[in-house]
Simulated assay, not measured.
Amino acid sequence: MALGRYDYERRYRRRFWAGFAKFGLFAAVLLGVGLFAYQMGIEQLKGRDVTLREEISTLSRQKAELELLASQMQHAARTAEARAAELEARLQREVPSGELARLTGLVSERLKGGMDPNRLAFVIAQVQAVRNCQPAETKRFALATPLLKSGNRSTSFNNGAVTVSGEGQSSRNAQGNPESWFDPAQPVTIKIAGMGGKDTVAKGVLPLHQTVVIDNTEYRFTFAPGARSFVEVTADRCPFP
């Protein structure tokens, strides 16, 4: 009986210590796995930290480069704006506009046409702001139409030195039929003829304005509708230049 009890207790102790050894081995394995996983996590964190630091360094460098580029572009934009303002101011100073541009164009046309620059300069220098002009003179004449071309269809100025005539489109009645007198709402053709000189033609809807120089005299004409079939002509006559 004593021997049996002894064997039972010894087997119990062996099972106890065997179970304890297995638990210890399992705990050691579990601890090892945990330590390995922890170490791996530390290494990954270190790797990510290094990567993040490199990315931050790269982004910081790119940010600095972009800021430098933006500063350079702003400087270039300010320089371009200043240059544009300077060119615009220079353009306004040097390029004629308005009446000066028109006069510059006329001078250029005369020079291209072969006029002597010295003669042109002399004519411009002789022009006076105050002019000794004759009083304006107003006359009228009947404008010729396709249905009425006979009779006196002109008038003259300065004792016949200048003759003015013209023609227009026939006016139409309520039925649409043409009449003898001209239609003032339609374009007309005015001819200014000097004795032995070249004719000047003005075209358009009345009123019209035309300036001509004949025999050292400048004529400034204004043509306006008058009584039915008539055109009123007002002429200023001044010495030229």
Rank of each mutant, 00 (worst) to 15 (best):
N216H: 11
Q62L: 01
G197M: 04
I190L: 06
G24E: 03
I42P: 00
N216M: 08
S154T: 03
L103I: 14
A129D: 13
V107W: 08
L147A: 11
L106R: 05
T145K: 09
F182Q: 12
G34T: 00
A28E: 04
Y6P: 09
G114H: 06
R13F: 08
A129Y: 12
P225I: 10
K191M: 04
L69N: 01
P184T: 10
Q175D: 04
V123W: 11
R153F: 11
Q175L: 15
D215K: 01
R153Y: 07
V162T: 06
Y38R: 12
V164N: 01
G113W: 13
M73H: 12
G204T: 02
T51Q: 04
S165M: 07
V162K: 00
G204A: 10
V233C: 03
T155Y: 06
T189N: 07
E43P: 01
P178A: 01
S57G: 03
K22S: 09
G160R: 09
E54A: 02
E179F: 11
R78M: 09
F221R: 09
T145P: 09
P225D: 12
P146L: 15
S171M: 10
T200A: 08
G176A: 05
E65A: 02
A174F: 08
E137R: 13
F20H: 03
D116M: 14
S71H: 11
L87S: 13
K203M: 02
G41T: 01
V212Y: 05
R93W: 04
